[in-house]
């Protein structure tokens, strides 16, 4: 009887154990939760507001994804004809900011209204947030130099972090500027991940600008020239999310199958410890565009289909 009980227990445990604790499964199928919440349009920015994720869609729309309520609401930004915005930044005081055109910092209302506008000292490529300060990427065509500067709204900009723009002697300056564009991802920790489009590296930066450079093993890296030639660039880091425990979740393009070569999105989800140690890379059965949230139980993804889906974390 005891032996039979042990046998049943072993069978049940074997069935439950789909992969080793702490290690990624080889492949994983995201389970749809709701949606679609967005179309094939460009996602130009992202900001988190408690349980909601805000996306800037197509440069003109604000999409609020309420993860708990499992629904999404879209509002049009009140812009003039041909005006577009890029990036979203939400400060600790709850204010939401974007770049309108190249040279205007705009504060957004939740109804899509432009609450205020400030002319910036020159064109800019990017806007992110760190605590109570905005992080700007100036349109700088003369590397090397600080990639990001920080300022409270309306304040003086000063260099932030040790992230520096890079030189590419064989490329023209417009291409170099494009390759030096930084993206910073969401965080539930004290550090956020920022990265260049061609590197399998993230810089982990805290609000004060203290920076650690972490190399991510196992990701497919494409030569910068090839990255710029593709209509669907294979980026080693498409999105990076730092979870509450400091773990780094990476959505990477990976090598798509020939049948899916035209589908934009990442096919590989990876998890790294805070020091960069890999806990494995999982192949997604369908492509994802963003990591929306990571909690103790699951990783919530925005799929290329526009659906919100989840996979179990490891």
């Amino acid at each position: 009887m005891t032996r039979a009980g042990l046998f049943v227990l072993a069978v049940v445990m074997g069935a439950c154990r789909t992969w080793s604790a702490g290690q990624a499964p080889a492949s994983i199928t995201p389970v749809p939760l709701f949606g679609p919440v967005i179309g094939a349009e460009v996602i130009g920015g992202r900001a988190d507001e408690r349980d909601d994720v805000l996306l800037l869609a197509g440069g003109t729309d604000l999409v609020r994804i309420a993860l708990s309520a499992r629904r999404a609401v879209r509002v049009k930004l009140r812009l003039s004809v041909a005006e577009e915005c890029w990036n979203l930044a939400r400060l600790t005081d709850g204010s939401l900011w974007t770049l309108k055109g190249r040279q205007t910092l705009a504060r957004l209302g939740s109804d899509g209204a432009i609450a205020s506008e400030t002319l910036l000292p020159g064109p800019h490529f990017g806007l992110f947030a760190a605590g109570d300060r905005l992080l700007f990427q100036r349109a700088d065509f003369t590397p090397p130099g600080p990639a990001l500067v920080a300022a409270v709204p309306g304040g003086t900009q000063s260099p932030w972090s040790a992230i520096a723009t890079r030189t590419f002697p064989s490329l023209a300056r417009a291409s170099v500027a494009a390759l030096n564009m930084v993206t910073c991802g969401p965080t539930d920790s004290r550090e956020r991940a920022c990265w260049f489009p061609d590197e399998a590296v993230v810089s982990l930066v805290d609000d004060n600008g203290s920076t650690r450079r972490v190399t991510l093993a196992g990701l497919v890296v494409t030569a910068p020239e090839a990255l710029l030639t593709s209509d669907n660039p294979q980026r080693p880091v498409r999105d990076a999310y730092v979870d509450a425990g400091g773990g780094i979740w990476i959505l990477s393009s990976g090598a798509s199958s020939a049948a899916a070569a035209d589908v934009p999105g990442g096919w590989v989800l990876g998890r790294y410890l805070s020091d960069g140690t890999s806990t494995g890379l999982a192949r997604l059965s369908s492509a994802a565009r963003l990591i929306l949230r990571v909690d103790a139980r699951s990783v919530i993804l925005l799929m290329s289909t526009g659906m919100v889906a989840e996979v179990p974390r490891w």
Binding site: G44, W86, L228
Partner: peptide
């Protein structure tokens, strides 16, 4: 840069 940004960063 705007054009590439949409494809590379968007």
């Amino acid at each position: 840069a705007d054009c590439v940004r949409r494809r590379l960063i968007g």
